Computed example of a mutant assay.
Amino acid sequence: MPESDPQDLPASTPAPGPEDAPVEPSPRMLDARALRGLAHPLRMRLLAELRREGPATASQLAERFGESSGSTSYHLRQLAAHGFVEDAAGHGKGRERWWQALHEGTGFDGSLIHDADPATSSAAGIFLQTVAANHAQEVAAWIAEAQTRLTRWQPGADLSDFTLRLTPGQSAELVGRLHEVINGYRDLPESPDTRTVRLHTHVLPRSAPAD
């Protein structure tokens, strides 16, 4: 990625004032059991799709992802067993089952990757690698779309990286402040020009040679 300054926010978008408390999402915090139940690439994609696009059936999700309905149905049942999805009441007719996500997001405790149980630490690695792969896929899709369809959105898009020298406390403070800014832009009034915008934040401490 090119190293550059961050893009300014569009002038038409009012920045939240200091008196406005950020709207926090309600994530599902992962414990060891829940992590082991979620850490599968297809399950994570299914859960993300239900969160972003709303309720769907196993057949609909299978068509979107090029999977068999038997596979999506199995993994949806596993997600339900671990408390990530549930039946979507009032959707559809007939016998086909509709599913919906139970939470807006997922909270991950980084200490799980050092868990004494090899099954948990392995699941943590799979979870993080899948998150990274999904981010890379989203960036590739954005680049392809930007070349043909998103001319008006170029000033509101950004693909930058930065290198800072921070202590662990300063890095944690930076993460918290970034999340506060992002959450301050939730639930703004919509207009005909509003569309879903995905933001990725990567704060990645690098080991010193002696570590």
Rank of each mutant, 00 (worst) to 15 (best):
E3H: 15
S4G: 11
D5L: 05
Q7F: 09
Q7R: 11
P14T: 03
P14H: 08
A21P: 12
A21D: 11
P22I: 03
E24R: 07
E24D: 02
P27V: 09
L30K: 00
L30H: 01
R33I: 05
L35Q: 00
R36T: 03
A39F: 01
H40A: 03
R43H: 07
R43S: 13
M44R: 03
L46A: 05
L50Q: 00
E53F: 07
P55S: 03
G66S: 10
G66H: 12
H75I: 04
L76Q: 04
L76D: 02
Q78E: 13
G90Q: 06
R97S: 00
W98V: 02
W99S: 01
H103I: 04
E104H: 02
G105H: 09
L112Q: 01
D115K: 02
A116N: 04
D117L: 04
P118Y: 07
T120H: 02
T120W: 02
S121I: 12
S122P: 00
A123M: 03
I126Y: 03
L128I: 15
L128W: 08
E138G: 12
A141R: 15
L150I: 02
T151S: 13
R152I: 07
R152D: 14
W153Y: 13
Q154H: 14
Q154N: 11
D158H: 12
D161L: 13
F162W: 08
T163M: 10
P168R: 06
Q170G: 11
S171N: 01
A172S: 15
L174V: 11
V175M: 14
V175Q: 15
L178A: 11
I182A: 15
G184H: 05
G184Q: 06
R186L: 08
P189H: 09
R195W: 15
V197W: 01
R198Q: 14
V203N: 12
L204P: 04
R206Y: 11
S207A: 15
S207G: 07
P209E: 00
A210C: 08
